[in-house]
Computed example of a mutant assay.
Amino acid sequence: MSLLEQINADIKSAMKAKEKDKLQAIRSVKSAFMLEMTKTGATELEDTKAIGILQKLVKQRKDAAETYKSGGREDLADKELLEMGFLEVYLPAKLTDQELSIAIEQIINETDASSMKDMGKVMGIASKQLAGKADGRSISDKVKALLS
């Protein structure tokens, strides 16, 4: 079952259960997916692309919640964090720090990287392989630490 099919099924179940907040969050995901499909002219959306869109939506909600908190609007921040929780369910499990180190060490060994000059090569492969499992900053920091 693709991620889009899962979203459609969850929309139906949220409608039946009358879960208004969950329904709104999931519909925003479907809307973003449909917009991307329209832009590219695709009839289906690859799961890797869908995960990227989901990550972007989660980050937007996290940033909005922080902005609302700093502005003293706890009610709006809580709503954003609630929606973020509904969306994170669809993302792959995050790697622990140790798992991330192991994965990047394997990539370094595969590419025969030995210095910071090889960082771009390692980052390119790591970003693709670890998409959705770790954020770009964590990957970058770990690659720098291991190549230094």
Rank of each mutant, 00 (worst) to 15 (best):
S2K: 06
L3F: 04
L4W: 07
N8P: 01
A9S: 10
D10N: 12
D10C: 00
I11V: 11
I11M: 06
A14P: 09
E19M: 09
E19S: 04
K20W: 15
D21W: 07
A25V: 11
I26S: 08
S31T: 15
M34R: 13
M34P: 05
M37Q: 11
T40H: 05
T40Y: 09
A42I: 03
E44M: 04
E44G: 02
D47E: 11
T48V: 12
G52P: 07
G52D: 07
Q55W: 12
Q60P: 00
K62I: 03
D63T: 15
Y68V: 00
G71A: 10
G72L: 07
G72Y: 02
R73M: 13
E74G: 01
E80M: 15
L81C: 06
G85V: 05
G85C: 06
E88S: 14
Y90N: 09
L91G: 06
T96V: 08
Q98H: 09
E99P: 01
E99M: 01
I102Q: 11
I107C: 07
I108P: 08
T111Q: 08
M119Q: 10
M123S: 07
I125R: 09
K128Q: 14
A134R: 03
R137C: 00
S138R: 09
I139M: 09
D141K: 12
K142T: 07
V143G: 01
V143E: 01
A145T: 01
A145H: 03
